[in-house]
Design a binder for these strands. Structure first.
Length: 464
DNA sequence: TGGCCTTTGAAGTGA
DNA sequence: TCACTTCAAAGGCCA
């Protein structure tokens, strides 16, 4: 876990990985930029690599763990280079090449706006570094620069590692404007912006109220009426990659995630005024599962994305009408239905936040959509991140947990355990894994127990 | 249509 | 305290 100034608890320290020095990364760049493999090869390589990693799990694990800093970087670099050359991926992943990421800038973003509504220079710098497609220029999003940026490839030094895994599928030039499904918006994005600690209440700057169609260049209404206000991101926001820092730039993010005026009575920042309502929310110390279904809408009119009310379950409420007339309806059933109707999700951890932010890039770079493959890539990229980069996400995750705790004081992760039928699924999966592990481990057991000399004592599976 | 896959991390559970 | 399990997101795939 990264230790930030102040020694804040962000997570397990031993979870931080050792990061390669930049010399190695540059080596990898030149090495990988010339590599050309098609998607099928890469997919198979992912599998092979995973197998390789399993075989050398101890090595990779040791590599992940931060070694004593006393170890000379040169030695480690040489070793890492040799190892990378051996590995199938050839060190395809590297940390995003913005070395020395100014994590120290993050606290500045807690108040990223100047009195005139524009971003502070520091926040602007940070946001541009992190989100080159996000127009954080003083002119606002309505400037055409945003479109220009969205249409042109993002600078490699800003965007980070391209998809070296899929160089043949690299279409970043016109695919960076990834259509991010509305639910890519972080569930806690509006949730977190409820905090007055981060933002001053008030409406967003007027220049942020409109969006421009990237194809036509015609300004669009903030939100199409057919888009559910539940996820205030319009599909038309092509090129606007949502990111977990959305809560840091709520006002700026509004044109990025257009909000229907019909759907929301107040824009996000005004939700900060919610402290009154939120205080009642908190003071009531409601058990999360006791929240009535419509309470997924915040009192500001903003639906709370952390509270999931599946349509199916909403439909079940219609059946409640008839069921209410039924004498069979018991209080226990009502409680049970309420629990089903409201599902407060877990706050995202650092890696999940990272995935949310980077997924669109990987999808754009690799033209891959399979999440399993994408997640493998993201997992490796995550390990390639520097401490500072990871620390940023650990800090975000920590803030999310804090806010989640504030919003749902009585909530526990246990509430979601087997809240749906996934419990059965997991159970089946676990049983399957156990069965597999038994098959694999049995030979080891017999071999360890009896040795090679006494194979006649081995059990059946071990003898195979 | 629901479960699986795949990743990491936080948190819960049981011994 | 430790090992293990579950669940967060995501979307294609498959039975």
């Amino acid at each position: 876990m990264p230790q930030l100034n102040g020694g804040d608890d962000l997570g397990a320290n031993d979870e931080m990985i050792s990061f390669k020095d930049e010399g190695e990364q540059e080596e990898k760049i030149s090495e990988n930029s010339s590599a050309e493999r098609d998607l099928a090869d890469v997919k198979s390589s992912l599998v092979n690599e995973s197998e390789t990693n399993q075989n050398s799990s101890s090595d990779s694990e040791a590599e992940r763990r931060p070694p004593p800093r006393s170890e000379t970087f040169r030695d480690k670099t040489r070793e890492s280079l040799e190892e990378a050359a051996k590995r199938q991926d050839g060190g395809l992943f590297k940390s995003p090449p913005y070395p020395g990421y100014p994590f120290i800038m993050i606290p500045d973003l807690t108040s990223p706006y100047l009195p005139n509504g524009s971003l502070s220079p520091t926040a602007r710098t940070y946001l541009q570094m992190k989100w080159p497609l996000l127009d954080v220029q003083p002119g606002g999003l309505q400037s055409r620069q945003a479109l220009k940026d969205a249409r042109s490839p993002s600078p490699a030094h800003i965007v980070g590692p391209f998809c070296w895994e899929f160089p043949g599928q690299f279409h970043l030039s016109n695919k960076v404007p990834v259509v991010q499904h509305p639910h890519h918006v972080h569930p806690l994005t509006p949730l977190i912006t409820y905090s007055n600690e981060h933002f001053t209440p008030g409406n967003p700057p007027p220049h942020l109220q409109t969006d421009v169609d990237p194809k036509t260049g015609i300004p669009r209404p903030p939100h199409p009426p057919d888009i559910s206000p539940y996820y205030p991101l319009s599909p038309g926001t092509v090129g606007q990659i949502p990111h977990p820092l959305g809560w840091l730039v709520p006002q700026q993010g509004q044109p990025v995630y257009p909000i229907t005026t019909g759907g929301f009575r107040h824009p996000y920042p005004t939700a900060l005024t919610v402290n009154a309502s939120m205080s009642s929310l908190l003071s009531s110390r409601f058990p999360p599962h006791m929240v009535p279904p419509h309470h997924s809408l915040h009192t500001t009119g903003i639906p709370h994305p952390a509270i999931v009310t599946p349509n199916v379950k909403q439909e079940s409420s219609h059946s409640d009408i008839s069921s209410l007339n039924s004498s069979k309806q018991t209080d226990a059933k009502k409680e049970e239905e309420k629990k089903k109707q409201v599902h407060i999700k877990k706050p995202l951890n650092a890696f999940m936040l990272y995935m949310k932010e980077m997924r669109a890039k990987v999808v754009a770079e690799c033209t891959l959509k399979e999440s399993a493959a994408i997640n493998q890539i993201l997992g490796r990229r995550w390990h390639a991140l520097s401490r500072e980069e990871q620390a940023k996400y650990y800090e975000l995750a920590r803030k999310e947990r804090q806010l989640h705790m504030q919003l749902y004081p009585g909530w526990s992760a246990r509430d979601n355990y087997a809240a749906n039928q996934q419990g059965k699924r997991k159970k089946r999966k676990r049983e399957k894994q156990q069965a597999e592990s038994n098959d694999l481990s049995a030979p080891k057991k017999c071999r360890a127990r009896f040795g090679l000399d006494q194979q006649n004592n081995w059990c059946g599976p071990c003898s195979l």
